Amino acid sequence: LVRYRTISKIPQITLNFVDLKGDPFLASPTSDREIIAPKIKERTHNVTEKVTQVLSLGADVLPEYKLQAPRIHRWTILHYSPFKAVWDWLILLLVIYTAVFTPYSAAFLLKETEEGPPATECGYACQPLAVVDLIVDIMFIVDILINFRTTYVNANEEVVSHPGRIAVHYFKGWFLIDMVAAIPFDLLIFGSGSEELIGLLKTARLLRLVRVARKLDRYSEYGAAVLFLLMCTFALIAHWLACIWYAIGNMEQPHMDSRIGWLHNLGDQIGKPYNSSGLGGPSIKDKYVTALYFTFSSLTSVGFGNVSPNTNSEKIFSICVMLIGSLMYASIFGNVSAIIQRLYSGTARYHTQMLRVREFIRFHQIPNPLRQRLEEYFQHAWSYTNGIDMNAVLKGFPECLQADICLHLNRSLLQHCKPFRGATKGCLRALAMKFKTTHAPPGDTLVHAGDLLTALYFISRGSIEILRGDVVVAILGKNDIFGEPLNLYARPGKSNGDVRALTYCDLHKIHR
């Protein structure tokens, strides 16, 4: 019993810090008490220290592992850092350059016999395009090294910054494609005289377009951006097909006994025919423009016929181009109408809503002055909100995010209106959640004399007048207030005048 009563005193000691020596009952000389009392004092002292730490809000209350900052290894790049964003855009520009100039170089340097010394005699450094290609190869190699040090988000939505895990993730992902696209074939085969082989191998750079397509997928929600990307894709495919079309004609031209190829026909049409040795002929500019003209006309199913396939190889390629053109029509131009419709969806919704308003007016036989006010209010409210119901949009977000959005939407009023000066951010967040926005066209009466005042109004834009009878008592403008002081009276009061809008007004109100 003594032991039980001794232990039962522990909660009292913990909360009230009572010393055991003052209790005459606990001072009985028993061996059990002498053993338990020192333990009680020690526990009391420890609990006292913990309570003191909690009340003082000291940093040592938290466990040590929670006080440590997340460790980022040296030379690790955050995937959302500004440097990584700028670097990704730079790589994107280099990939676009590669997609345009690599097929052009591979096709127009394929057994090209233009006048001038061969590239091997001039030297590697004197070729501007080769120098640019070398810079692109170096940048792609540097990009691989950067990807080995860039964080990523795993399946659990955690940012991984450990170098080993980053390397394994990159090896399992895009490393092989990036490595093949970054191989400097110019340096590996330079001086061997195989410019045709170098041009063909350099087309491996186009593998990076797969990554670019995935990154550009984030802009699919913007109709104008999608339309622009589709047109660029169409032009890029036409450019690639033009390079292939020229390569076919250029390879067949020296081996044909009869002059029936499209390059021969082009030379005869523009007065620059090929001679018996295969030299001469149109310039590279004429060849490229004509090839691009043929691919565009074939892809769009126009086909004027002034550039036509004559050999079997050219006919087979033309059939493939027609098939590609039909697929592009289905996948690209078939979506253009939907994209344009999405661009004008706001206008369509406006006309639909206006039609419903006019049908309501016609069905209920609203008189002319009231009908005009109804239409003007709808037009003004639509121009202010673009038909978007803010309350319906915010309803799907958590309250903390709703408060931040409301604070942002009402920031101008909260910053410049005098009653809100000096208020804490928590108070402003709470008030912003209570605001209701209303609009009024010129001549609209917001409050009639004798109406119950259940709200306090803040003028965000425009001006109003307060009338008693036919006498203008006051004219209020931006950041002015009218209405009933909230919670100042037990019952809502009545208006002693009319409140009429002089201009288009936007008002925020808080109800009782």
Rank of each mutant, 00 (worst) to 15 (best):
D404N: 03
A119N: 11
Y219V: 13
A204V: 07
G422M: 11
L299T: 01
I332D: 02
L236M: 09
I388S: 03
S105C: 03
A449C: 12
T347D: 10
H239K: 01
A242D: 01
I237G: 01
I324E: 01
F140M: 01
T424P: 09
K425A: 09
L200F: 10
N386S: 05
P442M: 04
T300P: 01
H416Y: 13
A182D: 04
K215A: 04
S277M: 10
R421N: 07
K172W: 04
Q68S: 07
D143C: 01
F140S: 01
K436A: 09
L323D: 01
I183T: 06
L446C: 01
A348P: 08
L327N: 01
I260M: 10
A440T: 09
A225G: 13
F360L: 04
Y274K: 01
V210S: 08
K215V: 03
S220Q: 13
E359L: 02
H239E: 01
E157S: 11
A225C: 11
F101V: 14
V289H: 03
G303N: 01
N156W: 05
S301G: 14
L394H: 03
P309W: 01
V136R: 11
E252I: 03
I339L: 10
G422Y: 01
Q402A: 03
L279Q: 15
I72E: 15
R259S: 15
Q127L: 05
S194M: 13
D286M: 01
A423R: 01
Y219G: 03
L394K: 02
D257C: 01
P103S: 01
I177G: 01
G116C: 05
Q402W: 03
D133S: 12
H73Q: 09
N306A: 03
E359A: 05
Q365H: 14
N154Q: 08
Y288K: 01
G278H: 03
I146M: 03
K272N: 01
H162L: 11
I135M: 14
Q415V: 08
H264R: 06
T295I: 11
G193V: 03
C122V: 01
Y222D: 08
H351R: 08
G267D: 01
D444H: 04
H416F: 12
G396C: 15
I284D: 03
T311C: 01
D143R: 01
K84V: 03
N265T: 14
C417E: 09
I340E: 01
L67V: 05
I138M: 03
S161G: 11
E64R: 09
G443K: 03
L370T: 01
F294M: 03
K215Q: 04
R429K: 15
A392S: 08
I324C: 08
V210H: 11
L236C: 01
L90Q: 01
I405L: 03
L401D: 03
S301A: 13
E195S: 14
N410K: 03
A440Q: 08
F101D: 01
W75N: 04
E314M: 01
A130W: 11
Q415S: 10
A204M: 07
G164L: 13
N265E: 15
A348W: 15
L299Y: 01
T150W: 01
V100I: 10
T76W: 01
L394E: 01
L145A: 08
H448Y: 14
Y288R: 01
L209I: 05
V180L: 13
M231A: 01
A224R: 03
M179Q: 01
A213V: 07
S277N: 15
F171R: 01
L216H: 04
H408F: 04
R259N: 14
V131K: 01
L92A: 03
I91V: 14
D88P: 01
L370S: 01
R362D: 03
T203W: 04
R349G: 09
G193M: 04
Y329G: 04
N306P: 01
V131M: 05
T424S: 11
L299N: 01
W89R: 01
F83A: 11
L230N: 14
F435S: 02
P398Q: 01
V302Y: 01
W87H: 01
A330E: 01
M139W: 01
Y274P: 01
S298K: 03
E359S: 08
V321L: 13
I248Y: 01
S313Y: 06
I138N: 03
P398E: 01
Q341I: 04
S313F: 04
S313H: 03
M231I: 09
T424D: 12
I135H: 01
L355S: 14
D404Q: 03
H239W: 01
T311W: 01
L327H: 01
A242Q: 01
I270K: 01
L401A: 03
W240V: 01
M433E: 01
A224Q: 09
A242S: 01
I91W: 01
H448V: 08
L446H: 01
L279W: 07
L414K: 01
D444A: 09
F435I: 10
T120E: 13
A242W: 01
P273C: 01
P369E: 09
Q68F: 13
H364R: 03
P254S: 15
F175C: 04
G267N: 01
S326I: 03
M231V: 05
H364K: 01
D286S: 01
M433H: 03
L201A: 05
W262F: 01
Y170S: 01
H169Q: 11
L145F: 10
F397E: 01
L370A: 01
L241N: 01
A225R: 05
T295G: 01
S161N: 07
L428Y: 04
K202G: 01
Q68W: 04
Y80T: 07
C126D: 01
W262K: 03
S412M: 13
P163K: 01
Y80K: 03
I96C: 07
Y274M: 01
N275Y: 01
H79R: 01
V100Q: 01
E376P: 01
Y350G: 01
A155Y: 11
I366V: 06
L292Q: 01
P70T: 08
A338I: 15
I405K: 02
H73F: 07
E64W: 11
R358H: 15
K202L: 01
E158C: 05
K172Y: 06
T438N: 09
V336I: 06
H79V: 01
A225T: 05
E221V: 01
F190V: 14
A430W: 08
S345F: 03
A69P: 05
I244N: 01
Q269D: 01
V447G: 03
I189V: 13
W245P: 01
Y222P: 12
E252P: 01
D186P: 15
L90E: 01
R218S: 05
M139G: 04
L370E: 01
L394Q: 04
R74T: 07
F296P: 01
P442L: 03
G443Q: 03
Q127V: 06
A119M: 05
G173P: 01
I284G: 01
V95S: 01
I388Q: 12
A155I: 14
L327G: 03
M433W: 04
A106D: 01
D133I: 01
L266N: 01
